[in-house]
Design a binder for these strands. Structure first.
Lengths: 124, 124
DNA sequence: CAGCATCCAGTACGATACTG
DNA sequence: CAGTATCGTACTGGATGCTG
């Protein structure tokens, strides 16, 4: 029973959370996971659906998500080859856990923007 | 009323959330904010308290948090100069919004680790 | 003490070309 | 179609030294 009402937790938890944020705070992980909510998608589908992503980053990010068990990869032995990516249950719970942050971002976005403008203005 | 039960939201929300994650997913922001939960701290106090942070990154990260309005900076016109950093109300609500993610990280950490090992092992 | 400027290594990312 | 390899660039973060 600690006095902490905020999720700072012990040092170990902090380290984990920081690593998690770094891991997931890259350019494309979140977009891809969000994109896959609608159901499985193929490589090229994703490439077209996600605006601005490069071939290379799509491969890399999918690999990384697959490695962590958030996304599953299914290859069908056909010609031409077909590979489908889908959200795993783990990936779905992950998206759910973001709710708090997403809501906070929506709620405070204007306020943060305001702070930034003011700060930048004051600095000459 | 959309079919989305997960916080993927519209494209605008997605972009905001991604930017938020990037902004906050750097090496030190989260550690600093967590550290300040206990109350205001001085520059050198933070430098000592946060293990591994460099002088430069402390300045930079504090600036950036101040800019976003998550942290307040109070300079006392004394000699030697004294500056105290504290969490703003906005900063506190931010920490609160992380609860879901922190819990998810704790709950699934072992599972994710397991996935990684297995993945790395399979890749010969 | 608090903060800034400079320099440097590591990495993230994009463009492109090539393989099964 | 899906994936790998190579290259160039831009940014991030650490070490260090200077200023008020």
């Amino acid at each position: 029973m600690e006095r902490t009402s905020t999720p700072c937790g012990d040092e170990r938890t902090q380290r984990h959370t920081r690593q998690l944020l770094r891991r997931v705070g890259d350019t494309w992980s979140l977009v891809l996971v969000s994109q896959l909510v609608g159901g499985p998608m193929r490589f090229t589908e994703l490439l077209r659906a996600v605006d601005g992503i490069s071939h290379r980053m799509l491969t890399q990010t999918l690999r990384s998500l697959e490695r962590d068990g958030l996304v599953s990869r299914t290859a069908y032995p056909e010609t031409p080859p077909r590979v489908e990516y889908a959200l795993t249950p783990l990936g779905q719970t992950f998206l759910g856990s973001l709710t708090g942050l997403v809501v906070w971002g929506e709620d405070t976005q204007a306020e943060v923007e305001e702070h930034r403008s003011r700060f930048d203005a004051d600095r000459h």
